[in-house]
């Protein structure tokens, strides 16, 4: 008797309240039908075995979905997640890292700070990912439960039945022409790090020495005043870079337009680089002195060395531009 009560309770606690009483009554009468008049525990066990796992029986009775997101919504759910998750991850990482570098005051140990910043960045990324994942999943789980139609076909963008005409609105992208998310992510990360470092160079780049067990910046490499004096054109170049990244993200593949924009931004950044690099006071004089003391050799950024650097930059820029046009020319 006792086992039967528990079995019925195990079934009914899993099903909607309004049906519980009736199902409990029916189950009890069914189980008793299976048993002889004076039954033993062994016979009860036999009857319950033939009814099977109460969870399984309850699943049959429950008329709500036994999954979080069903076949109708899963495709759109997965597509949306794949689209949104990388963007969120990227933005969170960039925001947190930039924030941390800008607020860096140059007094703490550099290695520890880098690790802290990375830690913060990764933590910020993970927590925003969990948030995004949770909310998107919640919305779809609710949709799944409120959708009264018992339709299992995947959703189409315009909520109608699929027709071959739907294919016309999807661009065909060849693998070689594709602009990957990693590319976009890398560019944005690189821009963020550059901004943070450029406007904070006096605290970040230079000669580090161990003082009282802490690694500290003693001689900055660059003259921050010189770097600051170019802020307007640097910001202009950066603005172009960011605009280009977003354009690439939307275009999703290399086209002639993308290649032309790539040329413009490369020319601008090259000009800005040459302008700043040609500045005589760019490098801190103390830094030169330090190098001289260290290597007993006169280091100065002028003449052939300067030209060499600039030529190298131009070669890389030209390769980048040519690559862009080459990819744009591939027939899709």
């Amino acid at each position: 008797m006792h086992l039967i009560d528990i079995y019925i309770q195990e079934v009914t606690r899993r099903i909607p309240e309004k049906n519980r009483e009736d199902i409990a009554l029916e189950l009890r009468s069914t189980i008793e039908d299976m048993l002889p008049d004076n039954y033993s525990e062994k016979e009860v066990k036999g009857a319950l075995t033939s009814l099977g796992n109460p969870a399984l029986l309850a699943r049959g009775y429950a008329d709500r979905p036994m999954h979080l997101i069903g076949p109708r919504y899963f495709d759109m759910y997965a597509t949306l997640l794949k689209m949104i998750i990388p963007i969120v991850a990227m933005l969170a990482l960039i925001v947190v890292i930039t924030e941390n570098i800008i607020s860096y005051n140059g007094e703490e140990a550099i290695l520890g700070t880098i690790l802290t910043i990375l830690g913060h960045g990764i933590w910020g990324m993970i927590s925003s990912l969990i948030q995004t994942f949770f909310w998107i999943t919640l919305v779809f789980a609710i949709l799944e439960r409120t959708d009264a139609l018992n339709d299992k076909t995947p959703l189409t963008p315009n909520w109608k039945e699929w027709t071959p005409d739907d294919l016309k609105s999807i661009p065909y992208i060849k693998k070689e022409k594709k602009i990957s998310k990693v590319d976009i992510f890398g560019s944005l990360l690189w821009i963020a790090i550059f901004v943070a470092v450029y406007f904070n160079a006096v605290h970040l780049i230079g000669v580090y020495e161990k003082i009282q067990g802490k690694l500290q910046l003693v001689i900055p490499t660059f003259n921050q005043d010189v770097l600051y004096s170019y802020w307007l054109i640097v910001l202009f170049a950066l603005f172009l870079e960011v605009a280009f990244v977003f354009y690439k993200f939307i275009a999703a593949q290399w086209t002639t337009k993308v290649a032309i924009m790539n040329t413009v931004r490369t020319v601008v950044s090259t000009v800005v680089f040459i302008l700043i690099f040609n500045e005589d006071n760019l490098i801190n004089l103390e830094f030169y002195k330090y190098l001289e003391d260290l290597f007993h050799f006169t280091f100065e950024l002028h003449g052939p060395v300067k030209v060499g650097f600039i030529l190298m930059w131009i070669v890389f820029a030209v390769i980048d531009v040519v690559q862009g046009f080459r990819k744009a020319k591939i027939r899709g």
């Binding site: 069914t30 039908d33 399984l56």
Partner: peptide, 23 residues
């Protein structure tokens, strides 16, 4: 009723899980 149906089906050697039949 539930159990009589099980017996009827079994007589015609149609086996059906009881956990499927009642729901």
């Amino acid at each position: 009723y539930g159990y009589s149906l099980v017996q009827l089906l079994e007589k015609s050697s149609v086996s059906i899980d009881q956990s499927t039949l009642y729901p």
